[in-house]
Every structure is written in structure tokens, then in C-alpha cells.
Design a binder for these strands. Structure first.
Length: 465
RNA sequence: GGCGCGGUAGCAAAGCGGUUAUGCACUGGAUUGCAAAUCCACGUAGGCCGGUUCGACUCCGGCCCGCGCCUCCA
């Protein structure tokens, strides 16, 4: 069975065949570090994490790069507002980003290049574009002349003249542009702004150049997969193609073979975005929910479809995970290597079919049902299968007991584990004395504090809501 | 105006030209000192109108509604 991926370029699912099966290359657009990221920013990270895991099972080496944009006007503005240096601010948010993404069980990428470490590569690429007649210098700016690229628009499936006609009010007209659609590769910096020396004076890069330059520098001239949110298709990725293709000798060498784009997160049916202000940061969500619940919630819809982000989605994700972890009671956390099982084969085939993750979740739940009906050796074996299955999508990697005892930042003022254990001990004695009134009283007391008790032959377990 | 996506049961969300998606919630039963967890039972859902077909949620056409992109954005 082969991996099939939906390619935005061709608008269809295609069989994935890497240029070099010994080393697959993937690049995903990372954050601009001027703030905590919102949950919409986390969706591609989680989605491409699952693709990364899938590719790693199929190929000996996968080079996955995710950039850090640490030069941007929004960073400059935020640093100024905070009275902080740009370096301090961006470093702080890089750390926060890495922590947040780790909380969502995402593996770190192979490479996390920063824009500010790759200015040379950008300048080189811009120079190549000028030499090849695709870019020009004007009033301290360097611009890409879109009309020199016959292929421009092939990713977003638009024609240049239609774009301009439709967007005439929004396209920035500037004296230094030859044509309105031309976009900035390099712009001049004033003394109070970050800047680098260049053949065109002290300045800083435009938005799009960092990705194409870093891809060429750190991965290859042609890479296998490039991912990001659907809102990056135009202009960002379209411009990357223009830069990454036109800068090379042939001018036709393919830049990226498979373009993948995830759908948006919506709030009340509308796109979540920083500019609209209708967003939740991953930080604040992690105060209220385990990272795994957030991850699960992000996986409930197919990656190319919009996903409505609601409280119900999260509590439903929590309940769903409760069921899965319930089936993993007393099971070891370690994943058994090289396990084979029809359910794993089925799950793998869903993932290979353009990441059909909702169907993977269905397989997980079917397994959980089977486990709950099984006993002894069979049950143990199925639990190992479920652990493995979870690993395919970055779920179910913690101890079941720890899962059920998870405490949010907001709950920390409540009962401690020791308090709870003490009350349970008291209740056990009461039960032994057939003092059921007192036993029930303790249970109600705990229930009011969000603690649910479960009696069994082996003793009493408890879970936090 | 151009390009694109979607409308499935109370909610969320998939596959599929004919046979249970799945989860959450609800209800009844088993189990339990009472609970919880678990198991069993329980939903002919597919925006509207045509067409193709022996048969359509699935394919085709039209319409209605919602959303996105069209140079800040994941």
C-alpha cells in the first residue's frame, strides 16, 4: 500500500513518491514569534506531526524543517511596546512555542531554522533573482516582478489579471513598484529597526523570501512536501514558488512536489485569527485541559476541513479519551516494538489515505470496546495493540492512572492526591464497618470537589473531572 | 466579480452505488450495599429539485444556504 496525499497544486490525491526514498524532505511554515500562538496555529503542527510519524515508518530518514520567523514588523512593534529588545522578545516566544507544542505531544522537527540566522541565504537568493531578471531594485527595495514568471498563480489556481481585478482596492500601490502585484523581497530599515547590510543597503527581508531561501539552504532545491494553513496558499506559498523556482539556473526546476494545506479553525463558524481577535492561545487552553485533549480535539475533523472550536468539542474529546484510557487501565505505558495486528494494518491504511484521522480514531474506539470485553491474556494483547495504535497519532502515551488524576492549573487549590487517598482510606474503613451512610457521605463530599470514585474488587480508584 | 470548500441523526464527524462508521449526550436493562466504570439494547440521518441506475447519502445537473481566499494571517 502506498501513501496518498492531496496535493493543492494538482487539486487531487496523488501517490506519494519521494525524490530520494533514502531521505524524504518536508517543510512546514512555523510561527512568527511575537506572541503566544493560538490554537489555530497548532493545527498544522499536530497534523504534520502525524505525517512526520507516518513518513518515519516508511522511510529510513525524514528531514522535517519548521522555521521560526523572528524578523517581522509585528515583532518590532511588540518589542517596542514592551520596552524589550527584539531578540529577548522573540527568544521568549520561541521557548513558549516549543513548550506549548511539546504539551500537544508533537515531536520536534529535525530542523528549526531561524530567519535571522539565514539572512545570507536570502540575500543570495535575491541576488540570483535580480541576475535572472525576475527582480529589480527600486528606492532601496528589491521587488519580485510577478509578470516575469509565466507559472505565477499555479498553486492558488488564479490568473494574475483576475487577481488584480478582484483585489484592486487592497493591492498596495507603491511608487517603487513597477506593477501592482510585485512583492517585496528586501526593504530598507531605519536605524531603530533590525537590519542587515546588503548590496541594496541596510535592510531586512520581505515575508516570503525566508522560506524559499531556507528550504534551498537546509533541505534541497526541490523538496518533497511543503505544508501550512490554507490561508498561506496565496500569497505566501505562491510567492515562495516564484522565488524558489526562478532563482535557479533552469528556472523550471520544481520547487515543491506536494503542497499540503490544512483547513482553518472556526469560532462560531468564522475563521479564528489574530486579526479578528476571536482566538484562544494554546497557553490558556493548557490551563484548562490536558494537552492530549487539545490534540484529540484537533484531530476530530479531517485535516483539510474546517473545524469549529467549541467548549463542547473539548469536553467531548475529554470523554472520548476517558473511554480509551479506561481500556488501558493497568496496561504498561511502553509500546511493544514490531507489533502486528489487523487493527494496526487498518489504521495504517487510513493514515496512508491522505491522513484519514477521524477513521483512525474510530479504530481506536473499536479496539477499546474489544479490550473492555476481553479478559486475561487476550485483554493484555489488545491493550498493547491500542498503545501502539495511539502512538501512530501521538495519543495514549501516558499512564492511565495519571490521565485520570490530571489536575488543571485552576484546580490546584483543590484537594491534593494525598487528601483524596486519606478520605478513601476512611471510607474503606466505614465500608468495612458497614457504615454506608458515612461511606456515601465521603463519596458525595469528593464528588462535590470534582472527584469520582470507582469501587472494584481490587479497591477504590478515583478520577478528577 | 474570480477561484475554492462545505450542508449527514440531539451534537460532533467519516467512509461508501446495495450490507453497523465512530465518539459525545439521552433512555432502558445487566452489574453494584448505593454509585462509578463496563457490557447489552436503542437512532432507515444525509439542504431542496430533477436526472442516470434494478437500486443514490454516495454519480450528474440546477437551485438554496453557510464559509474561505483574492497581498497581515496557520
Amino acid at each position: 500500500m502506498t501513501i496518498q496525499l492531496y496535493n493543492t497544486l494538482t487539486q487531487r490525491k496523488e501517490v506519494f513518491t519521494p525524490i530520494n526514498p533514502d531521505e524524504v524532505t518536508m517543510y512546514v511554515c512555523g510561527p512568527t514569534v511575537y506572541n503566544f500562538v493560538h490554537i489555530g496555529n497548532a493545527r498544522p503542527v499536530v497534523i504534520f506531526d502525524i505525517l512526520f510519524r507516518l513518513l518515519q515508518r516508511h522511510y529510513p530518514s525524514v528531514k522535517y524543517a519548521r522555521n521560526i520567523t523572528d524578523v517581522d514588523d509585528k515583532i518590532n512593534a511588540a518589542a517596542k511596546a514592551n520596552g524589550e529588545t527584539i531578540a529577548e522578545l522573540s527568544e521568549r516566544y520561541v521557548q513558549a512555542y516549543n513548550q506549548d507544542m511539546a504539551q500537544l505531544n508533537t515531536q520536534p522537527p529535525t530542523l528549526a531554522p531561524r530567519a535571522t540566522d539565514n539572512i545570507d541565504a536570502m540575500i543570495q537568493q535575491i541576488q540570483a533573482l535580480i541576475e535572472r531578471g525576475h527582480a529589480y531594485e527600486s528606492e532601496g527595495h528589491v521587488l519580485f516582478q510577478v509578470s516575469t514568471d509565466q507559472e505565477y498563480g499555479k498553486l492558488s489556481h488564479r490568473k494574475l489579471d483576475e487577481m488584480i481585478a478582484g483585489a484592486s482596492e487592497r493591492v498596495e500601490e507603491a511608487s517603487y513598484k513597477r506593477e501592482p502585484a510585485d512583492f517585496v523581497l528586501w526593504k530598507p530599515s531605519t536605524d531603530d529597526l533590525p537590519g542587515w547590510d546588503s548590496p541594496w543597503g541596510r535592510g531586512r527581508p520581505g515575508w516570503h523570501i525566508e522560506c524559499s531561501a531556507m528550504i534551498n539552504k537546509h533541505l534541497a532545491n526541490t523538496i518533497d512536501i511543503h505544508g501550512g494553513g490554507q490561508d498561506l496558499i496565496f500569497p505566501h506559498h505562491e510567492n515562495e514558488i516564484a522565488q524558489g523556482t526562478c532563482c535557479h539556473e533552469s528556472g523550471t526546476e520544481q520547487f515543491v512536489r506536494y503542497w499540503m494545506h490544512n483547513g482553518y479553525l472556526n469560532i462560531d463558524g468564522e475563521k479564528m485569527s489574530k486579526s479578528l481577535g476571536n482566538f484562544f492561545t494554546v497557553r490558556e487552553l493548557l490551563e484548562l485541559w490536558p494537552g492530549e485533549v487539545i490534540r484529540y480535539a484537533l484531530l476530530t475533523a479531517h485535516y483539510r476541513k474546517p473545524l469549529d472550536w467549541t467548549k463542547d468539542l473539548l469536553s467531548s474529546a475529554k470523554s472520548s479519551l476517558d473511554r480509551l484510557y479506561g481500556a488501558l487501565r493497568d496496561a504498561p505505558v511502553e509500546i511493544e516494538p514490531n507489533l502486528t495486528h489487523p487493527a494496526l494494518t487498518e489504521l495504517e491504511s487510513h493514515l496512508q489515505d491522505d491522513l484519514a484521522i477521524p477513521q483512525v480514531l474510530a479504530v481506536l474506539h473499536t479496539l477499546a470496546g474489544d479490550i473492555n470485553k476481553a479478559n486475561g491474556k487476550e485483554k493484555r494483547a489488545l491493550q498493547a495493540v491500542l498503545r501502539s495504535a495511539g502512538g501512530y497519532v501521538g495519543l495514549l502515551d501516558q499512564d492511565s492512572d495519571a490521565w485520570f488524576k490530571w489536575q488543571s492549573g485552576k484546580q490546584e487549590s483543590g484537594l491534593s492526591d494525598a487528601d483524596i487517598d486519606a478520605l478513601i482510606a476512611e471510607r474503606a474503613q466505614a465500608k468495612k464497618d458497614k457504615n454506608y451512610a458515612r461511606a456515601d457521605e465521603i463519596r458525595v463530599e469528593l464528588k462535590n470537589q470534582g472527584i469520582t470514585l470507582e469501587d472494584s474488587r481490587e479497591g477504590t480508584r478515583w478520577t478528577r473531572d
